[in-house]
Design a protein around this nucleic acid. Sequence first.
DNA 1: CTGACTGCAAACCATTTGCAGCTGT
DNA 2: ACAGCTGCAAATGGTTTGCAGTCAG
Lengths: 147, 147
Amino acid sequence: MLDNKKVTELLRKKGFKVTPQRLAIYNALCNTKAHPNAEMIFNKLQPYYPTMSLATIYKTVDILHEIGLINILNVGEDSFRYDANTSSHAHICCTECGRVDDIMIDFAKCVEEVASQSSYDVHRHQFYFYGTCAECKAKLNSKAKVS
Amino acid sequence: MLDNKKVTELLRKKGFKVTPQRLAIYNALCNTKAHPNAEMIFNKLQPYYPTMSLATIYKTVDILHEIGLINILNVGEDSFRYDANTSSHAHICCTECGRVDDIMIDFAKCVEEVASQSSYDVHRHQFYFYGTCAECKAKLNSKAKVS
DNA sequence: CTGACTGCAAACCATTTGCAGCTGT
DNA sequence: ACAGCTGCAAATGGTTTGCAGTCAG
């Protein structure tokens, strides 16, 4: 969650140019908790950057991931989602409506246990939980009452 | 990891027909620890079922997943992988060679913690770890010595 | 017998690539 | 200036779909 000045510095330091598109995509990711995919980012930026193409979004998220500014998520859908919150946290997906929320719990102990028991050098991890969100639970209950 | 008799019963009970293709695909998944994707299953069965198509594999894994016989994994590749081991366990992927191994550690406590702190009803979870496997570590070391 | 299944080919769709013109430095 | 970037259009590749013939029950 860096400000534009820091992002500019980092991009330059890593040998990339700083363009309005790149800043806009990173800012769009900072200003949402929806964990959007490429198309959702595209639709959000469309009013402000009407000529921006999906190709630019894909190329940009690759770079942002490469320089460690974003995480790439795959919750089991056909598209990837992107997250500007790079602190260690898990994700939970509603199997009814598809929303993806953060779980701000630190699983350091689990990771340590794996690192000590596995023959791998463990660098990174990704935890996904699946269930029914509060809103969908409410909807399902009211439907059950009607029928 | 059921035997053919039990799989037959289960398929019938759920209203599906039992075909040689379905049994072969399930058995192929039971007899590997590689967590294969559709194409890997296809190549493995090719010698024995030369007319089987990828479409059949995709349709079959859908059904096997629906009746709870297999798990679907997505480690961040462009294809899905399938696992006949449905017991609660995590997976670790080598970022060098792409292999996927099981981690037979039970994360019940982590899951409980999430279930108690989240507003979701938690039904399912998927834990992925990423790192360098023992073989790739060895290769990387010997390369480092040479250069 | 009959509805479900297989396997082929075509369709689909998220993502990637090639390239001409533009822009950051 | 000039290498790297954008945005278009075309290509790619995993997965899905439509459908005619086949097979399990």
